[in-house]
């Protein structure tokens, strides 16, 4: 009967060596924003144990990083305007590019932008657009051409909006001919007052996956992200994507390493892994968002490369306005946003 303690001791020893030997990486990403197998493949190849958690919008992520002063996570994937904000507040650390062998794969189109000149602190992961989703079984997609169409009284209690302050304001700002990055209080107020008129039409603010209510048949019209449409179409080809004529919302999400990250080495390995052409290819194939990775794009099938939802036409891109940091004006947006959601 001496076996049990001996076994226990062996297990404990095995556990403690495992604890010491194991490299770790804590990733904090948007929900459903990486193919499930990619994380597992990365773990298998590198032996690094990945702890993965998700957030539903930029603001929640920012609050946590801010509160923990940049500790607790090794990789985060903020949108451009928050890359800028977090960089200026000293929440990010420089990415050591000498550790990245796949940097050359990135297309220069989305590098060296004002939110992070020279890409010292961020490298783009995916970009995409926010437009209008239509279920063609219930609504003729050709009748929906603009954000303004959503204001029609006949959609009372029918619309889905994303639970994202910048995207919702984008609609109203564009509808009134303003920039999506407007910091002019008068313009933002006009947008707010216009959104108040839209609220009776809103059924739901969706935070995690806008395609779900479309696929469940609970909504047939509303805002949706380009990749969500591609994912939804795999199961339900009736869901269509419309680029509103005032301009869809365009955004880039980038890998950053918070200043207090504990596994900096692993974080660089992860970024480098994600920059591989075949990994980038799989990301686009499974998520349907657009990749800034030129080498990955070249590997995609003709059909995907020419899919206008993933890679919009040159005509659309010419007028596309990307989200940018708007500094202190954000407080103004947040205040109005809270009022809108409370019903005022």
């Amino acid at each position: 009967m001496i076996k049990l303690p001996a076994l226990l001791a062996a297990v404990l020893m095995a556990m403690s060596t495992a604890l010491h030997a194991e490299e770790k990486l804590v990733v904090y990403n948007w929900a459903e924003y990486i193919p499930e197998s990619t994380v597992a493949d990365f773990e298998k190849e590198t032996g690094i144990k990945v702890e993965y958690s998700t957030y539903e919008n930029n603001e929640v992520m920012y609050s946590k990083i801010k509160l923990q002063k940049g500790k607790g996570y090794d990789i985060v994937v903020p949108s451009a305007y928050l890359v800028s904000k977090m960089r200026q507040e000293g929440l990010l650390q420089k990415i050591d590019k000498t550790k990245l062998t796949n940097l050359k794969n990135l297309s220069p189109d989305l590098l060296d932008k004002p939110y992070d000149p020279g890409n010292g602190y961020s490298l783009p992961y995916l970009w995409g657009s926010t437009g209008i989703g239509v279920n063609s079984k219930e609504i003729d997609p050709s009748t929906i051409t603009s954000w303004a169409d959503l204001w029609d009284e006949k959609w009372q209690g029918k619309l889905l909006l994303t639970d994202d302050v910048r995207e919702v304001f984008h609609m109203a700002l564009k509808k009134n001919g303003f920039s999506t990055n407007s910091t002019n209080p008068d313009e933002v107020k006009v947008a707010y007052e216009d959104l108040q008129k839209l609220m009776p039409n809103v059924l739901v603010f969706n935070a995690d996956a806008p395609r779900e209510p479309f696929m469940a048949g609970d909504v047939n019209l509303g805002m949706i992200w380009s990749g969500e449409v591609i994912m939804a179409q795999a199961d339900n080809p009736d869901i269509h994507y419309v680029f509103p004529k005032e301009g869809a919302g365009f955004w880039v999400d980038s890998f950053v390493i918070p200043v207090g990250a504990e596994n900096v080495e692993s974080a660089h390995k992860f970024i480098d892994y994600m920059l591989r052409p075949e990994v980038g290819q799989k990301v686009v194939e499974e998520l349907g968002y657009s990749t800034p990775n030129a080498a990955a794009k070249a590997l995609l099938s003709e059909e995907l490369q020419n899919n206008p939802v993933i890679f919009p036409s040159a005509e659309i891109m010419k007028t596309a306005e990307f989200q940018n940091d708007i500094g202190d004006a954000m407080k103004l947006y947040d205040g109005y946003w809270e009022k809108l959601k409370t019903g005022e």
């Binding site: 919008n57 603001e59 929640v60 609050s63 801010k66 302050v165 947040d334 946003w337 809270e338 959601k341």
Partner: peptide, 8 residues
């Protein structure tokens, strides 16, 4: 929740 996480 929104005051703490979104509006800060």
């Amino acid at each position: 929740k929104n005051q703490f996480l979104v509006v800060r």
